[in-house]
Design a binder for these strands. Structure first.
Length: 339
DNA sequence: AAGGCGGTCAACCGCCGGGAT
DNA sequence: CATCCCGGCGGTTGACCGCCT
């Protein structure tokens, strides 16, 4: 399906442009302008696709293009516009005289997004990554959505979720006394976070205030708002869990007994017990945005060393404590072994 | 010195929307 | 109204380069 190719690919040259080709294209456009690009290659004596000619002209040969490095002002503008517009590179480039959408896109992908991540800002949502961790944490303590149950009520209807995700979002819960004291492994993770915190440069403007310095710790253990949100999530969770356990127990029947594994009423157990690695991804909304979001979180994990921590956690046999049904379930593995 | 590796950026690909027929 | 054609756009690829081991 789809449209046929815009040109005869067999007779079309691809790859980098030579100075001779550039000269031909420039000579043609300077005398004839940039009308019908499909005719340009033939009339300019180029064995190129019209699209390729247009791209070469607009991204490289066009007059008034800037080829020097981006300035601080341009950087700031790109970040601001990206926060407002997302990856609408052509719109962003329109606000930057002499820059092309390709320039802006490349600069974003290779430099700016990394800069933001290093400053603890999620380049996709432009929110502090730790804030997003809290959001994930609030999601994580919810059980998988019962709507994912198969018609026959089998527990395998739940999509498998990652065995464990970062524990950063649980810190507020520990601090609020809603989770048991942190294990040595969790404390080790906090050391990593503290190191990142200490190394973090001042952040750009965030929702925490104009020009205010942003640190990881602002969103972690001493974040009263997060603790309050966690408490609220905790209350919701109790309600949802009660309903879920009732439905899941009925659905699972006498077979695996998986669903009732997590049926304990203790909040500590329900929120992850000693390792907290619960993420009920399976029943969630999903979609491309969610996937991109998760990728961003995983990138963050790499930078903070959390991924290494998770790898160590997963390598610990005690973490799994043996239940095949729990791994089939794909969520709440830590919860299931919280005793 | 050489190979590996990551960063950068030009270029390509496929899809989409709008105008023309 | 349906189809075709073209330009534009965003995502992705791959060549090139410099740094590191």
């Amino acid at each position: 399906m789809g449209r046929p190719p815009c040109c005869d690919k067999a007779n079309v040259k691809k790859g980098p442009w030579t100075p001779e080709e550039d000269a031909k294209l420039l000579a043609y456009t300077s005398t004839h302008g940039t009308g019908n690009w499909t005719n340009v290659p033939q009339r300019a004596g180029l064995k190129r696709c019209g699209k390729s000619c247009r791209l070469r002209y607009t991204n490289y040969l066009r007059p008034n293009l800037k080829h020097e490095n981006f300035t601080q002002e341009e950087e700031d503008l790109i970040v601001t516009l990206h926060a407002m517009l997302g990856s609408r590179w052509s719109l962003i480039a329109n606000q930057l005289p002499g820059r092309t959408d390709n320039d802006v896109k490349n600069y974003w992908n290779t430099k700016l997004s990394k800069k933001l991540r290093q400053r603890g800002i999620d380049p996709i949502t432009h929110r502090p990554i730790a804030d997003l961790m809290h959001s994930i944490g609030a999601l994580a303590i919810r059980p998988p959505q019962p709507l994912a149950l198969s018609p026959n009520g089998g527990s395998t209807a739940y999509l498998p979720a990652p065995a464990a995700l970062p524990l950063v979002h649980d810190v507020a819960y520990h601090a609020a006394g809603m989770l048991p004291p942190m294990t040595p492994a969790q404390q080790q993770q906090q050391v990593v976070i503290a190191r990142v915190d200490a190394d973090a440069p001042a952040s750009p403007t965030t929702e925490h205030g104009q020009g205010q310095e942003l640190k990881w710790s602002d969103f972690l253990a001493d974040d009263a708002a997060a603790a309050a949100a966690a408490a609220e999530a905790q209350q919701q969770q109790q309600v949802v869990l009660g309903q879920y356990h009732h439905e899941a127990a009925a659905a699972a029947g006498a077979g695996s007994g998986v669903a009732v594994h997590g049926a304990g009423s203790s909040s500590a157990a329900a929120t992850g017990g000693d390792d907290g690695g619960i993420v009920g991804v399976g029943g969630g909304g999903g979609g491309d945005g969610a996937a991109a979001f998760i990728d961003a979180i995983l990138d963050c994990d790499k930078e903070t060393g959390v991924d290494q921590f998770i790898a160590e956690l997963l390598a610990d046999p005690a973490y799994y404590a043996g239940s095949s049904s729990s791994s089939e379930m794909g969520w709440g593995i830590g919860l299931l072994n919280a005793d």
